[in-house]
C-alpha cells in the first residue's frame, strides 16, 4: 500500500518512515495492470467474443425476469431479461472511451498550458494560472452539468466536458514539474547551445514532465469514468447506448434493489475493481518515480 504522504505533496521525512525506501513497483501494480488490460481487451474485442447479445431478451417462458446469477447468465439478467455479463462488457466500451478521450484531452490541453506557464513565467504564467483558478472554482460536477445541458449529450461532448475538468489539475501538475526542471543545468546547457524555446520544451522538458503526468493519467481516467457515472445518475449521461453508470442506475430503484440487487451490483463490482486498479497503478507509478505535488 502506498504512503498517503505523496497524495497531498506533504513530504514525510525519511526518519519518520524507517526502512521504507522501496524502489520496487510491486506485484500489486502488475495485478492492477493485468485487470486493466483484461477489461480493455474484453471491451475492444466484445463483438467477436462468444458473448450473448446485450440487447436481446432471454425470457424463459412461464417465468418473469429479472433472473438471478446462474450458469447461463453469470451476472444474472435485468428486468428485461437481458444478459448482464455481456451488458457490463459492452458498457465498458463506452465507459472506457469516455475515460480515455477525457483524460487525453485534459493531458494535451492542460499539460501544454502547464508547461508553457511554467517555462515562460511572467504574464503568461499569471494569465494561465487565473484561467485554471476559475476552472477550479466551479464545483466540478456543476461545470459538467452546465456544458452537457447546453450543448448535447453525445459521446464526444461528454468526453470532452470531462476532459475540460481535467485541465486544471493536470495543468497545475505540469506547471509545477516544469518549474522544477526549467532552472536545471541541462536546460541552461541546451539554451546556451542555441536551442529554441520550442525545442527546449519538446526535447528537454516534456520527457521529464511526462512521468508524473502518466501517474495522473491513470488516476484521471478513473475520475472520468466515475464522473460519467455521476452524470448518469443525474440523467445527463449519453443518450444512446449504455455505460457502467447507466447500468448501475437501471437497478438502483428501491424495489429493484430489494428483489434483484444484482442488477446494480454486477456493474458496481466491475466499475469498482477497475477504478481501484487504475488508482492503485497510478499510486504505484507515482511512488516509484517519487513524484510529489500531485493533487487531484
Amino acid at each position: 500500500m502506498s504512503e498517503p504522504s505523496a497524495e497531498t505533496g506533504v513530504t514525510v521525512p525519511m526518519a519518520a518512515e524507517p526502512g521504507r525506501v522501496q524502489r520496487r513497483i510491486g506485484i500489486g501494480f502488475w495485478l492492477s495492470m493485468s485487470w486493466i488490460v483484461l477489461v480493455v481487451l474484453a471491451a475492444v474485442l466484445a463483438p467477436w467474443l462468444p458473448l450473448k447479445d446485450p440487447d436481446a431478451n432471454y425470457i424463459v417462458t412461464g417465468t418473469r425476469p429479472p433472473y438471478g446469477p446462474s450458469w447461463t447468465h453469470p451476472f444474472g439478467t435485468d428486468q428485461d431479461a437481458r444478459d448482464l455479463f455481456s451488458r457490463v462488457i459492452f458498457g465498458a466500451r463506452t465507459s472506457l472511451i469516455i475515460g480515455f478521450v477525457a483524460i487525453s484531452f485534459g493531458m494535451i490541453i492542460g499539460g501544454g498550458l502547464g508547461i508553457i506557464a511554467g517555462y515562460y513565467r511572467k504574464w503568461v504564467d499569471r494569465t494561465i494560472s487565473v484561467v485554471m483558478l476559475i476552472l477550479l472554482s466551479f464545483p466540478a460536477l456543476i461545470l459538467a452539468i452546465l456544458i452537457t445541458s447546453l450543448i448535447d449529450r453525445g459521446l464526444f461532448t461528454i468526453s470532452v466536458t470531462l476532459g475540460i475538468l481535467a485541465i486544471a489539475p493536470v495543468g497545475r501538475l505540469a506547471r509545477a514539474a516544469t518549474l522544477s526542471f526549467a532552472e536545471r543545468e541541462f536546460v541552461t546547457a541546451a539554451r546556451s547551445l542555441g536551442a529554441s524555446n520550442g525545442r527546449i520544451i519538446v526535447r528537454e522538458l516534456l520527457p521529464n514532465v511526462v512521468i508524473p503526468m502518466a501517474a495522473l493519467a491513470l488516476l484521471g481516467m478513473a475520475v472520468a469514468i466515475v464522473a460519467e457515472g455521476g452524470l448518469a445518475f443525474l440523467g445527463l449521461s449519453i443518450e444512446k447506448g449504455f455505460t457502467w453508470g447507466k447500468l448501475i442506475l437501471y437497478g438502483a430503484g428501491a424495489r429493484d434493489l430489494e428483489r434483484a440487487p444484482w442488477i446494480s451490483f454486477a456493474p458496481i463490482l466491475v466499475l469498482f475493481i477497475t477504478v481501484l486498479a487504475l488508482n492503485y497503478a497510478g499510486d504505484r507509478i507515482r511512488d516509484y518515480f517519487d513524484v510529489k505535488e500531485i493533487s487531484l
Binding site: V226, G229, F233, I248, A252, A254, L257, I268, F272, V275
Partner: peptide, 12 residues
C-alpha cells in the same frame, strides 16, 4: 476508490 453513487446504493 468507491464512487459515491455506488456507496449510496450499497448503503441503501
Amino acid at each position: 476508490a468507491l464512487p459515491n453513487f455506488a456507496l449510496g446504493i450499497i448503503l441503501k
